[in-house]
């Protein structure tokens, strides 16, 4: 039986893992390769690396880091952050990334999704969507939540899939960092309206929250960062808990 996936997310800045609250007050969370290897051993199903390094110059270190990760870990990983072109993706895939994730660049230039799917296959194109509850609608926001758009989340998810997205990573900006649980309503609306897998993100604070997003919102995978980095929840404990709730997981 296909299992629900648990995905730790590592925010990378200048080659280190960092985690902030609402994108400020970044705390150092360690060496990404060491952390990635720890998650592998603990039974993480996949990893996501988001590069939040601002300058182009420093981004060159990302390719080296991706290669270092690829030579050390034996599960799939996705790399995102600042990807704008086919060349950006080529470099990451050549260095061993399995999938890439695009967010703001896809909203600004939706054809990028088509181009990447055509060149590399849909299976490696993850479209990340940041959603925020504005005026009673879930709108798409960009630039790490700073810029609002007029796009409705459900419209954008459909367009992204039509253009070739193989998977969606849906983050609720309302819930991100709150540890109050995933945004079940919008996650359910998206998972029930699309045919590709959906990774839910934002708000995980307890093991119950993971059970809720799988059972109530039908998410295919759940992503979290700080609760794993700072050992508030251990992945083996989480997976045993989920199995006891009759949720299929890899143990």
């Amino acid at each position: 039986m296909l299992t629900k996936r648990i995905i730790p997310c590592l925010d990378i800045k200048d080659g280190r893992t960092v985690k902030g609250t609402n994108f400020i007050e970044l705390r150092d969370a360690g060496d990404p390769v060491e952390l990635a290897m720890r998650y592998c051993e603990e039974g993480a199903d996949e990893l996501v690396f988001l590069d939040i390094t601002a300058t182009t110059e420093k981004r060159k270190t990302l390719a080296r880091l991706v290669r270092e990760i690829a030579t050390h870990i034996n599960i799939p990983f996705t790399v995102g952050g600042g990807i704008n072109t086919i060349e950006d993706v080529s470099i990451l895939l050549e260095n061993g990334a399995d999938k890439i994730s695009i967010n703001t660049s896809a909203v600004k230039n939706p054809k990028l999704i088509n181009e990447l799917a055509k060149n590399f296959g849909s299976q490696c194109v993850v479209v990340a969507i940041d959603a925020k509850h504005i005026d009673n609608n879930w709108k798409v926001v960009t630039h790490g939540g700073r810029n609002a758009t007029t796009l409705l989340t459900t419209d954008w998810t459909k367009e992204a899939i039509e253009r070739g997205a193989g998977e969606l990573l849906l983050t609720s900006m309302e819930n991100d960092g709150t540890k109050a649980g995933f945004a079940l309503e919008i996650t359910k609306e998206v998972t029930n309206s699309v045919t590709v897998p959906v990774i839910a993100s934002g708000g995980a604070g307890s093991m119950e929250h993971f059970a809720d997003v799988f059972q109530q919102a039908n998410a295919d995978a759940a992503l979290a960062a700080s609760i794993f980095h700072f050992k508030e929840i251990a992945i083996p404990d989480l997976k045993r808990y989920l199995r006891n709730q009759n949720i299929a997981v890899r143990l």
Binding site: L2, T3, R5, D45, Q123, G166, E167, D220
Partner: peptide, 16 residues
């Protein structure tokens, strides 16, 4: 079978 509403396609993840 894309008409099976329970199946996400592609299958992505761990299966036995």
């Amino acid at each position: 079978d894309a008409t099976d509403a329970n199946l996400k396609i592609p299958q992505i993840g761990w299966n036995n």
